[in-house]
Design a protein around this nucleic acid. Structure first.
Lengths: 188, 188
DNA sequence: CGCCGCATGTAATTAGTTACATGATTGT
DNA sequence: ACAATCATGTAACTAATTACATGCGGCG
């Protein structure tokens, strides 16, 4: 399970609470690995039991107390070893593509609408990635090594969004064609 | 759960056995939705119980008997309705991107090797998609409506592979840079 | 007063993976 | 003899989602 390793990765530089990790999993690393707060809190307890993380209670005034976690030496070691092992991919599962296999004049308007929503989401994500890139990764060659790895992941995200946006525009044009045909067939 | 609907989609044109469906989920629709034979057999039994599929025993000589499934009228109706609902996406989870967040001169050679493997896989997949495109989808505008939807899905697959291949080449160059630096640092 | 953000959890369910099982036929 | 393909499953487990729970403080 790489969720554990994704969490440890997020803790490479900072000591974070479950709540903070959950938020950072909504951005940054979370672009490549989604996780709910329930999953994260559970994983943190498991990792601490394994001695890979250590926790510290932080009382807060005016806010609930929190528990922050940090990597132990054993955790750092385990993470390094994990990187050297085989990777596994779980391809994304997207209803929308299955739906395209069912395209008909009847459902084309609905699919078009879904496409537009997707395009908006992808557009926002792309804008965010590009902001991050311009702010922190303008000169990838000058970055410390680990940052260069993060830059590559970011670049993959950017390319992915761009590709999807371009595809969505093509798909929208085709769907509009299907709908126009259906209208003219109905009028004849 | 869209696995059920992916299966029904695969049965739109043909009546297939669980075994045949499993194979077709390794190609075609399976590019957008992976499923093991255990999952598929179970889903088929569930769908039949719900009256969305009907089965027929087909005795075979020289081979084990098989059970082929087909959509019922209720199944077709349910599928059409499902297409009109909201889509859900499960973003892909890929260890490799998390690993890039851990890039170091120490693990760069390993990541490079993984990248090369990925590039080979993506390359084969792309070649397959393109063969399918040239064989069946040369003139998308002339296709029946539903085939045009499948064409769009195929196109998304092609674009996705192309993007990943281009990214992998960039990533490989960067990793080689990291490794070269490490060597020259060790020699100085 | 009610909702939002902070902060952390339990419990139940669904989805997916891994391991194992069976038994015939065809090819090397 | 041994593996591969056809064909269908059970059982155990891991991962992920959904629903529900608690309680404080600040804002409108």
């Amino acid at each position: 399970m790489a969720l554990n390793h994704a969490i440890m990765t997020a803790l490479l530089d900072d000591r974070l609470s479950g709540y903070e990790l959950t938020k950072s999993f909504d951005t940054s690393l979370g672009f490549f690995w989604k996780a709910s707060h329930q999953q994260i809190y559970k994983a943190l307890r498991d990792l601490e039991k394994q001695g890979l993380l250590e926790s510290e209670d932080v009382p807060q005034a005016g806010k609930p107390d929190k528990v922050i976690y940090g990597l132990t030496a054993a955790g750092r070691e385990a993470l390094e070893q994990w990187v050297l092992g085989d990777s596994r991919v779980t391809e994304s599962k997207d209803d929308m593509f299955v739906k395209f296999y069912n395209l008909s004049p009847n459902n084309a308007p609905h699919l078009l609408q879904e496409l537009v929503e997707r395009r908006e989401q992808d557009g926002m994500r792309l804008a965010l990635y590009q902001r991050i890139k311009e702010r922190h990764y303008t000169e990838p060659g000058a970055l410390p090594v680990r940052k260069r790895g993060i830059y590559l992941a970011l670049l993959a995200g950017i390319r992915h969004c761009e590709t999807r946006l371009a595809w969505a525009r093509e798909a929208e044009a085709l769907l509009q064609g299907v709908m126009a045909e259906a209208v003219s067939a109905a009028n004849s």
